[in-house]
């Protein structure tokens, strides 16, 4: 592919990728990190344009964004550790929690799940991906994605049920976040 063709191809697909990856990142990190990682993701997409699939383009791009974000977060954690060492303070928590004022039960149920399960549910509900597409993002088999997603949904339902019917554990609900 000559340079002009590359540019044309990239310019044709990139706006959709930018929009989708912006949303993907806004759901998972702060605005400043999202901007940096979006730029990095585009750079990698541009460099790997020859590997870009004709179908399932967005899951492919999400997969790249996921790795770039993990890299940025590792770097942040390193910086946090350094700051903590210097200031003798605990580093801030790296977990991005779902903040929701309208559905506290769901937020709490999600917070009790394993991060891997939460991510599967986000990809399914927020990015609107099929198990096959989730498999592309996470680099696992479609079968594994399907099974894990099914289990994650079940775990979330269980957590929601427990929350709705706490039985003898009323004290647990008293400290519920607004």
């Amino acid at each position: 592919m000559n340079p002009d063709e590359r540019r044309r191809r990239f310019e044709a697909v990139a706006p959709a990728v930018v929009d989708a990856v912006r949303r993907y990142l806004a759901r998972r990190t702060d605005a400043a990190t999202a901007d940096d990682v979006l730029q990095e993701t585009l750079l990698v997409c541009w460099r790997r344009l020859d590997d870009m699939p004709a179908v399932e383009l967005l899951p492919w791009a999400y997969g790249i964004a996921r790795l770039c974000l993990a890299n940025a977060e590792r770097s942040h954690r390193r910086q946090n550790r350094l700051v903590a060492r210097i200031l003798r303070l605990d580093p801030p928590g790296a977990v991005t929690r779902m903040v929701d004022d309208t559905d506290g039960e769901l937020a709490e149920a999600m917070a009790r799940l394993r991060p891997d399960d939460v991510e599967l549910l986000r990809l399914w509900a927020w990015e609107d991906l099929t198990p096959g597409e989730i498999a592309t993002v996470l680099g696992i088999s479609a079968n594994a994605a399907s099974i894990r997603l099914h289990r994650a949904k079940q775990k979330l339902r269980d957590e929601l049920r427990k929350h709705s019917h706490p039985g003898g554990h009323e004290e647990l609900t008293e400290g519920r976040r607004p």
Partner: peptide, 9 residues
């Protein structure tokens, strides 16, 4: 649907 209503984006 319930999850989507909590979508930060």
């Amino acid at each position: 649907s319930r999850l989507r209503r909590t979508d930060p984006a």
